[in-house]
């Protein structure tokens, strides 16, 4: 069973940018693209810089894939799969996220291991 955890209101999100939520002691970066009605959740941890900062990266797309670029050293990560564009051996966890009645819910089940 998936546990959805209520995180915040949709108004707390930053349009076309990210915020960070603390879910079960995991730092989760949540990105919101209102024009496409798209929302993504990935781990906030940047494996290249060894710090928790991805929610503060700039988002957009690369070769048609939604991506975030790390604020530290500018690697790009696919927001849907967590795959790093520059290094195929690096993939960061992605989490479930949904908007229900104006509330944002995240699940970290399954991805945590």
């Amino acid at each position: 069973m998936t546990t959805w955890i209520d995180v915040c209101s949709i108004d707390d999100l930053q349009p076309n940018s990210g915020v960070c939520a603390l879910v079960d002691n995991q730092q989760v970066a949540i990105f919101y693209m209102p024009e496409d009605d798209a929302i993504f959740a990935i781990d906030n941890y940047d494996p290249f810089g060894d710090v928790h900062v991805l929610s503060r990266g700039l988002i957009g797309d690369m070769a048609g894939r939604p991506m975030v670029s790390s604020p530290l050293y500018k690697q790009h990560f696919d927001l849907q799969t967590g795959q790093c564009f520059e290094d195929e051996t690096v993939k960061i966890p992605v989490y479930g996220v949904q908007i229900i009645a104006g509330r944002v819910e995240v699940t970290v089940d399954g991805a945590a291991q």
Partner: peptide, 22 residues
């Protein structure tokens, strides 16, 4: 400004330079 905020690099969005530890 809302329309510009997402355009800026990390440093500009937080009006400060990010250091190696975030």
């Amino acid at each position: 400004k809302d329309e510009h905020l997402s355009l800026q690099d990390t440093n500009d969005t937080f009006l400060a330079n990010m250091q190696k530890d975030g």
